[in-house]
Design a protein around this nucleic acid. Structure first.
Length: 577
DNA sequence: GCCGTTTTCGGCCCGACTGTTTTCAGTCG
């Protein structure tokens, strides 16, 4: 999918224009278009081919021409012109916290600094303080900023950031001065990675809260400390921003800091058109200068005539249009989940027995769980031989006598072999209740081979679900080369479900692809792939990803009650057909 | 560069914090 590459190109045009001190609104236009294309639930190429570029938010005549040029030639001439006018290194320099486009340009013009290394040298030589408007303090900050960029350039996975956010909130809630505390920002929106954490506190004693916050265990550096805001860096490199407000401003502040930036801009534009002014302090009637009472986030939306928009949907501003026209989805929730269709046991590489996994699932209120251990070719993970699988099916049958309110489904996570065949024969697969098929080998195949390989697996009548369809591991392994759009089309055609693997290292399918799949009428299965009982708790990451994909419970296979689930698995629908 | 039942031209969100300044620009979210 080219959307992300194109979005990156447009965003870079915005960065370059900013360094060149161009019209800020033109810059914003490129940023908006980039963001909008990044979040598009459809391939930009398809949209272009069908002549629908004009329908994309933030894409007008000018940028549409650039998009077309990029799709046909692979580059945008205007972008290349800009690149020639701005040394490449300046793009790195504006990533340094505290150094923006103005300072980067100033440093380049005054000192000839054109890379991160040269900037560091200039700071160490004390040359930066010789520039008018910059001083010794700025020099120090830049050096610290450079260190941060080098040490921590990556965004933090949600699976790391969320526990940190919860722990900070818990620490703050212990303070007597704190009435309410919550995390906001991209962590609350459930983005798969977060740049930093945003924490909101309601309190009548902001100084006390700020003081305690900057002294929390794990704080390595204080970046800023004001009357109501503070920023720190944790020792693990994660930045945390705190905003302290009076308790009656809490909801407005929570909304503001939850963002996204684009969502806030769209909300404020709408408010302005209604004679209102929205800020993190609340909502003011411009005419009377009176503050509107805002007790909950619901009130913020109601003030501008909209229904509540869940945080996971607050991204590019297009959610406002959906809200206005009453097209917001009723998003799937944790309590809608009735089971987990992909977990492991001690039979392969899991830590707990089938019974332990089942009891843990039952304790969570689930109606069913599918044991999907690895197949034989995955030797490193203790894959089951056909004989072992038959024995496992028998054990599951025995175990199921224990309950009349819970069922273990006999399943497998069968390997899709490099040639697209499966690791068990059809006769064996037909004896299972549910089959997840996944790629675990030969991940470096070319795009066409990989795409055909997975589609071949979907054509098997006993493959109900494709597991972690793109194979990525966040921060460690890129997705393998595969045409996700064709996978989705084939899933729709064959009736195969696609997994949203809830493990926070995977989140695969990702939000945007899940939305595409939903739009194509494909079932999604939100599974934890748990290898131990505690792993079942990661379901919420998958549900959050599903919500970011605008999924309702009617799109999620494992929101079905047991009997309905069994009827809706591909194998059974086939049989009935 | 985008966009429009208040506009096809003239708008385009809002406020806090920092550092280097005698009143504010740049940066950030």
């Amino acid at each position: 999918m080219k959307n992300l590459q194109l979005a990156a190109t447009l965003a870079e045009i915005a960065d370059l224009l900013e360094i060149l001190d161009e019209n800020p609104f033109r810059i914003r236009a490129y940023r908006r278009a980039a963001r909008s294309i990044e979040l598009l639930p459809e391939s930009i190429e398809t949209i272009w081919r069908e002549g629908r570029l004009g329908e994309v938010e933030g894409v007008g005549k000018g940028i549409a021409a650039g998009v077309e040029e990029w799709l046909t030639t692979g580059a945008i001439a205007f972008h290349q012109e800009l690149q020639e006018r701005v040394p490449r290194g300046l793009l790195e320099i504006v990533r340094v916290p505290g150094v923006g486009p103005k300072t980067a340009r100033l440093l380049y013009e005054e000192l000839g600094v054109r890379s991160l290394d040269e900037l560091e040298a200039a700071c160490r030589a004390g040359r930066v303080r010789t520039v008018k408007g910059l001083g010794a303090k700025t020099e120090e900050n830049i050096l610290r900023g450079i260190e941060r960029v080098r040490r921590h350039s990556e965004r933090t996975p949600l699976g790391v950031a969320l526990p940190a956010a919860r722990s900070i909130v818990a620490e703050l809630e212990r303070l007597p001065a704190v009435r309410r505390a919550a995390y906001a920002g991209s962590a609350r929106r459930g983005r798969e990675t977060v740049g930093d954490l945003d924490i909101i506190v309601g309190s009548d004693d902001a100084p006390a809260v700020i003081q305690a916050f900057v002294g929390l265990p794990g704080v390595a550096q204080v970046l800023a400390q004001g009357r109501e805001k503070a920023s720190v860096v944790l020792s693990q490199g994660l930045q945390v921003d705190l905003l302290v407000v009076r308790d009656h401003q809490f909801a407005a502040a929570l909304h503001h800091f939850t963002g996204s930036k684009e969502h806030n801009i769209a909300m404020r534009e709408l408010a302005k058109s209604l004679g209102l002014r929205i800020s993190e302090h609340g909502i003011m009637d411009e005419k009377t200068q009176a503050w509107l009472p805002v007790a909950t986030e619901d009130d913020v939306f109601r003030a501008v005539g909209l229904p509540y928009i869940p945080p996971e949907l607050r991204e590019d501003g297009s959610e406002l249009a959906a809200a206005k026209s009453s097209h917001l989805p009723r998003l799937v929730e944790m309590q809608d989940i009735r089971g987990d269709l992909h977990v492991h046991s001690t039979w392969s590489d899991g830590r707990h027995t089938i019974l332990e996994m089942a009891e843990a699932a039952r304790a969570r209120g689930y109606e069913y769980i599918a044991i999907a251990d690895h197949s034989r070719s995955l030797g490193v993970a203790g894959g089951l031989s056909p004989e072992e699988l038959v024995a496992q099916i028998e054990e599951i049958r025995q175990l199921n006598r224990r309950w009349d309110d819970f069922r273990i489904l006999a399943g497998a996570e069968v390997d899709i072999l490099p040639d697209g065949t499966l690791d068990y024969d059809d006769e064996l697969l037909s004896r299972l209740d549910v089959v997840v098929a996944s790629v675990h080998s030969a991940m470096n195949q070319d795009r066409e081979t990989m795409t055909q390989r997975i589609i071949a697996a979907m054509r098997n009548p006993y493959v109900d679900i494709i597991g972690h369809p793109t194979g990525r591991v966040l921060g460690w392994r890129d997705p393998y080369e595969v045409d996700v759009e064709r996978l989705i089309a084939a899933a729709a055609e064959t009736g195969t479900a696609l997994e949203i693997n809830a493990s926070p290292e995977r989140l695969d399918l990702k939000d945007v692809h899940a939305r595409m799949a939903k739009d194509a009428g494909v079932w999604l299965a939100v599974n934890t792939d748990a290898h131990r009982m505690e792993g079942l708790e990661q379901m919420h990451y998958g549900v959050t990803t599903a919500r970011r994909g605008w999924l309702e419970k009617g799109h999620v296979l494992n929101c079905l009650p047991l009997e309905e689930l069994l009827r809706n698995l591909k194998r059974h629908r086939r049989r009935e057909a």
